[in-house]
Write a protein that binds this DNA or RNA. Sequence first.
DNA 1: CGTGCGATTGAGTGAGATCAAGCCCAGTGG
DNA 2: CCACTGGGCTTGATCTCACTCAATCGCACG
Lengths: 197, 197
Amino acid sequence: VRLSRGGALVREGERRRGVFTLTKGALRRIRLLPDGRRLVAGFLMPGDFIGFSGASHYRHSIEAIIDSTVCAFSMSDMRTLCSDHPQLERELLERACVELDATRGNLMSLARLNPMERLAGFLVDMAMRRRRQGQDDSEVILPMTRTDIADYLGLTVETVSRSFTRLRQEGSIATDDRHHVRLLDRARLDALAEARA
Amino acid sequence: VRLSRGGALVREGERRRGVFTLTKGALRRIRLLPDGRRLVAGFLMPGDFIGFSGASHYRHSIEAIIDSTVCAFSMSDMRTLCSDHPQLERELLERACVELDATRGNLMSLARLNPMERLAGFLVDMAMRRRRQGQDDSEVILPMTRTDIADYLGLTVETVSRSFTRLRQEGSIATDDRHHVRLLDRARLDALAEARA
DNA sequence: CGTGCGATTGAGTGAGATCAAGCCCAGTGG
DNA sequence: CCACTGGGCTTGATCTCACTCAATCGCACG
């Protein structure tokens, strides 16, 4: 399935149809409140599995940040695959646990860290994801907007922008353009991030 | 295994030993920062499974809020159980997904809700847990302290206390004693909580 | 009868939100 | 080619809500 920038893969409240894996691009997991408050519950990068949920209806919308392609499986596909390959269920459990760890890490960020710490944690986390993909982790590519980052970190756009500026001023990072950040002082960023994953 | 009030089942940073299920009592999942900031990443009630993690070391301490008893399984017990009962792995995946849903729900609370909304959400959530156990859900028993609740909701004790007072003043709840809360206006509480569940 | 912890309440402060303005750049159309 | 437009980002000024600090109360426990 191909998704163009801004398109929705699934919408909050819809009946659950199936599961997906992201092969190319970048997605965001969104929840909205009636009054407009917005949460980005996570970003999805190539290789990520989408569909860990015990609920019958989607709890979040999943939207494309940039043009993306996903691989879709219906629920019945899923069931037959699982019964054919008992290994698969174990692998999925493993992945679900990793995602749970990551999500719990975000709790600390949202509950107790200040804006600089949250942003540093986010950057370090993005760098780690790149390393896992075998890419250079001294630079990070942020396909999402500052607003997305703000709604992910539980801050406002302005605060996110100011935090970027402060990290740049103290020499921890350099921003080549909006979407490319170089991590100059990894020790400093790690120290700020500390509490997270 | 028996745990007395305040005792630790596992400590953050220890090598992962096994998994557990809580049979009686109440536990809290804790993470601490060097500077003393504290997060309660969750509360565990009887029936809950403890041990969903992809990490080799515990990411949180698990402490007894009140005297508790848990059932312990070593990692090898777990592996043999799983290979003997393929059903078990599915059941665990299901449970992990439910826990993931719950944890993601908390993200919205921490990122975007104000203190009253967070507290209302917490109370509604605790009531729902009671209903699932087949108990009366118009009253809620809170074995934990106000400090625990504050560190769970990302607030200070004072703010939690003030939020309790405001909910009491507007007639949404009644507090018989510190640990017993009656939910008087469920519609109001649900409206406040909205984003969670 | 003290002692200490947990909870509540009040007063004052400050970090991040809100409001507002301007910049940069890509896309569009004349 | 350039003017115009609009969205995303940054920066400054102000405000506000939750935090901090402090005092008191109540209750359990030695």
